Simulated scan of single mutants.
Amino acid sequence: MNSTVASYRIDAGGSSLEEIAVYPTVPEGAAAGNHASDLQISSDGRFLYGANRGHDSIAIFEIDAETGRLSRKVQVPCGGRTRRNLAIAPQGDHLLCANQDSDVVTIFTRNAETGALSDSGKTIRIGTPMCLRFAKA
């Protein structure tokens, strides 16, 4: 609820967590009233995507596999209001964002090498989208 994401280290036995660091999901000076709503990690474990309600953005972080530390790459406008959920397509080439108060799912093209998102120009108009899941064909 405070617009942050934290990374943790799990001990060898898997019985305890140690906080590594806490990172903001919005830029410094962002207006009050924002809260993070969903986190997704790419299947290769290299990138974390965090949705922000209020700031109406998606924060992109790169994950350092050795240290567990995050580095924020960029903020991307999410194409609507009140982010509820993010979903990365099984092939990893798209990220979808459910924008509850805009009645739209925004479709981003995802670069698997850099983690970057770009607007595909495509959306799905649907009333109050809240949860996204991909079904096996």
Rank of each mutant, 00 (worst) to 15 (best):
I88Q: 08
G50I: 07
I124C: 02
L17F: 14
S118D: 13
T4N: 10
Y49Q: 00
D44C: 08
G80N: 09
R83V: 06
P77A: 12
I60Y: 05
T25D: 07
N111C: 06
A32P: 13
V5F: 01
G29P: 02
D103N: 15
E113P: 01
S71E: 15
F47Y: 15
S43P: 09
G68L: 08
N52A: 02
A12H: 07
A31H: 09
R72N: 03
C131K: 08
R9T: 12
L96N: 05
F108I: 03
S15F: 04
E113G: 01
A98T: 02
I124P: 03
G92M: 06
P77L: 00
N34T: 15
S42G: 11
R84Q: 12
L95F: 05
A65G: 02
R125W: 04
G33R: 04
A112P: 07
G13L: 00
L48G: 13
S43D: 14
R110S: 09
S37Y: 09
S71W: 02
S57I: 10
G115Q: 07
A21N: 13
Y23A: 06
F47P: 11
E28C: 00
T106V: 12
T106P: 05
G115R: 11
D93K: 12
A87E: 09
T82S: 11
A31T: 08
P27D: 12
R84E: 15
H55V: 00
Q100R: 14
D101K: 09
R84K: 07
C78E: 15
L95H: 10
F108P: 11
R9I: 04
S120L: 10
A87M: 09
A32H: 06
A31G: 06
V22K: 14
T4M: 06
C97Q: 00
R81L: 13
E19K: 15
A30G: 00
I20A: 05
D64F: 04
S43K: 14
D64H: 03
D103E: 11
V5N: 03
N34P: 04
R9A: 12
A135G: 11
G13I: 04
E62M: 07
I60P: 03
V22Y: 00
I60N: 05
I126D: 14
R81T: 06
Q40M: 12
A32S: 13
D11W: 05
G54F: 03
A65H: 14
L117V: 01
Y49V: 00
G79N: 09
L117E: 07
R69D: 11
R46H: 13
Q40N: 04
A65S: 13
R133E: 13
E19T: 10
D56C: 02
V104P: 08
F108E: 11
